[in-house]
C-alpha cells in the first residue's frame, strides 16, 4: 500500500469539490424549464406573437443560466488550474 501524500489528498479533494460545484446546475435547469413552460403556454394563448415570445424566452434563459456557469467555472478551475498546491 502506497502512502497517500498531502498533494494526492488535495488533488482528490479538488475533484470532489468540482463535482459538488456542479450541483449548481440544478437551479438553472429548474429556471430554464419554467421559462420554457411559460413561453409554451404564452404561445398557446397568442400564437401570433411567437417570435417575440421566443426571443424573450431565450434572453431570460441565458440570464438564468449565469449562476450555473459560475459553478461550472469553479469546477473547471478546481480541476485544471489547480489553485491549491
Amino acid at each position: 500500500m502506497n502512502q497517500v501524500t498531502g498533494q494526492d489528498f488535495i488533488n482528490a479533494m479538488s475533484a470532489v469539490g468540482a463535482g459538488i460545484a456542479m450541483i449548481a446546475g440544478i437551479g438553472p435547469g429548474i429556471g430554464q424549464g419554467y421559462a420554457a413552460g411559460q413561453a409554451a403556454a404564452a404561445v398557446g394563448r397568442n400564437p401570433g406573437a411567437k417570435s417575440d415570445i421566443t426571443s424573450t424566452m431565450l434572453l431570460g434563459q441565458a440570464v438564468a443560466e449565469t449562476t450555473g456557469l459560475y459553478g461550472f467555472a469553479v469546477a473547471i478551475i478546481l480541476m485544471f488550474v489547480k489553485p491549491f498546491k
Partner: peptide
Amino acid sequence: SLRLFGNVLS
C-alpha cells in the same frame, strides 16, 4: 464575459 466564456467552454 463569464456567460459567453462558460457556454462556449462547456
